[in-house]
Amino acid sequence: MREALTMQGSHAVLTRANPLAKFVAVFLVSMVLALSIDWVSASTAIVAELALFPLAGLTLRLLWHRAWPLIIAAAIGGWSTAIVAADRGAVLLDVGIWSISEGSLELGLGFMLRGLAIALPAILLMTCTDPTDLADALAQKARLPHRFVLGSLAAMRLVGLMAEEWQTIGMARRARGVGSHGNPLQRLKATLGQSFGLLVQAVRRASRLAVTMEARGFGGGQRTWARESSYSLLDVWVVLGGLIIASATVLAAVGAGTWTFVWR
């Protein structure tokens, strides 16, 4: 988790783009993809996204490492859509509560690909965006209130620490006789106790961090920025790229006749 929050040593092209521009591009593609459930628009997007990954400094192996849980999630989403969606066309499977027809299978497949096509660019975005730069952009360019942005950023820095503390609390509780084994109810109880322990530490740490920040003059209405968040020509290309991918998916789907608007 800690690795997810730093991007030490990456010099990929997209790391230099303004986080806000990247976010707009990714969000745009996601919104357009969300409008239709069809395999053509989703596949088009996936192909384009995969082609862009080298620009974000992601190798195929790293990508696989981060993406496989999403593929599983998308597959499950596709399956549930296939069995729950209204049947159209020939029924392929009908066992008890499960029924899959040609129509619902196509829908399920489209849904799975769409889910993946929406999830992948978020990974792309986060691999080439440092949270600090994102916060700078949000506060300076998007003009979100800086106290909230920087407060969240500072808290975000403690994520790695919280994850380690979670593990430590688990061990500390085992040393008290609270096992994480047993039946689901016992495990649930153990997890709730462990969560409570983590919450106490979270509030303590956050309160101390708030004192540190306040003692450094944080909390006033005005401040200067040591680093300016700025736009460059690259950002124009990034947004343009997002537009192009979004339009390409629509054109491909409409051209292939598969475009299926979600609110039919």
């Binding site: 106290r147 407060g151 808290a155 994850a163 983590l198 956050a206 309160s207 708030a210 944080f218």
Partner: peptide
């Protein structure tokens, strides 16, 4: 909102994220 409100709220949200992740 005071600074302590912001930071504690944010960390509660994030700790929530860690708990769900686990």
């Amino acid at each position: 909102w005071r600074v302590v409100d912001i930071v504690v709220a944010a960390l509660i949200a994030i700790a929530g994220g860690v708990i769900f992740w686990a």
